[in-house]
Design a protein around this nucleic acid. Sequence first.
DNA 1: CAGAAACATGCAAAATATCGCAGAGTCAAG
DNA 2: CTTGACTCTGCGATATTTTGCATGTTTCTG
Lengths: 225, 225
Amino acid sequence: MLTSQRRALITARLARDGQLVAKALADELGVSEDTIRRDLRDMAADGLLQRVHGGALPLQPSLPDFAARQEIGDDAKRDLGKKAAGLIKAGQLIFLDGGTTNAQIARALPRNLAVTIATHSPTIAADLVHHAAEVILIGGRLYKHSMVATGSAALAAIGAMRPDIFFLGVTALHPVYGLSTGDFEEAAIKRAIAAQSAETYVAATNEKFGTTSPTGSCLWNDWPD
Amino acid sequence: MLTSQRRALITARLARDGQLVAKALADELGVSEDTIRRDLRDMAADGLLQRVHGGALPLQPSLPDFAARQEIGDDAKRDLGKKAAGLIKAGQLIFLDGGTTNAQIARALPRNLAVTIATHSPTIAADLVHHAAEVILIGGRLYKHSMVATGSAALAAIGAMRPDIFFLGVTALHPVYGLSTGDFEEAAIKRAIAAQSAETYVAATNEKFGTTSPTGSCLWNDWPD
DNA sequence: CAGAAACATGCAAAATATCGCAGAGTCAAG
DNA sequence: CTTGACTCTGCGATATTTTGCATGTTTCTG
């Protein structure tokens, strides 16, 4: 990403969100905080924004529902996404399962990280438009409840790859009943991906713990972390 | 490659990508960075682009990305989408190409219509969440500029189906040069789908008429309507 | 007040830009 | 066909910009 584009993005973000956090943008763009701070300092000197501790504000504070936007993003999930994205290293082949939690991983991925992301979720693929990452879309019959491709076509495509890491999404996670998901066929897909992958991580927020999925299809009964 | 051709390509790339990195283009064309830089310097002096450190930007930052283009609800396109959706009958297998125009077709589709929609565009698949239609997602390597799956995996999946109607998206449409699209591989995919389909319709708004895609890959030189 | 986070500053490495120059190619007049 | 003017291109030397890191300082928070 070019320097001038980054500054244009800062302006756009300020107009859209009414605020900007330096560290968050640094992580998102995959540059150091110093670089963002320098941008903000220079732009403030040019009178393009108002510099504040931790980030920047637009010159004339945008009135729109700042609070509403703030609530949209689930902080816990976003933090989890950021942490999970930290496990990903350049050059790896990553498989991202569907679900909102994994969507946060995709969004938290540094934009310039050179990795290959495979996914059978069209929504996650769409979230990766702005990233440098190569995206491999797995096709198949779309199971709309979870927005993931299923069926034999998906299984065949999965069988042809060996991901380094698989980020598994679950609907429920129980100390006794293990991981479970609502749909039988979806569970089969998840098992297939895990079988191909060197490592499998489960990204789930606390609310999922101790629950079971009513029509649950058991995935595993034990897992490392 | 001739100098004027190179400069025309620079203009085209700026219009398509909204940015241009000098070193990347130098590597791609097999010329030194000096040559590209000289081009950019001269073109900036002629007011054809905005020179920035590392490359160049269009004068008026064109719609930066697909997402932004998506947002712009063009009334003409919406009407076109509605009209095209009217051609679809229950029970058919429809293939939807990528692009904003075809996204409008997806949205205009009656929610309860029992059809099967095949597409290689994750964004179009995502638009069909709330429809009753069965969705077949074609997988492959994601070509992010148009947000469509490409590559051999996509071609293989396409070869296994016989759509009743294919709604083709084009970037340019010219009475002499025919239909064209920006990317060579994308064009190959479009040809493959059309070959499998009983009927192919081109959905395009007036602005596409009489234009050619600068790095155009010709699709056909004649078409019915 | 103490620890953590954010900040400014200086510095070095890398990337990028500019300049001058020479070789290769083009083109038109002789 | 040859010659000379001209343009384009790549290379080397030098300058500028950008970036990340280390260091010390300031600001925030409990």
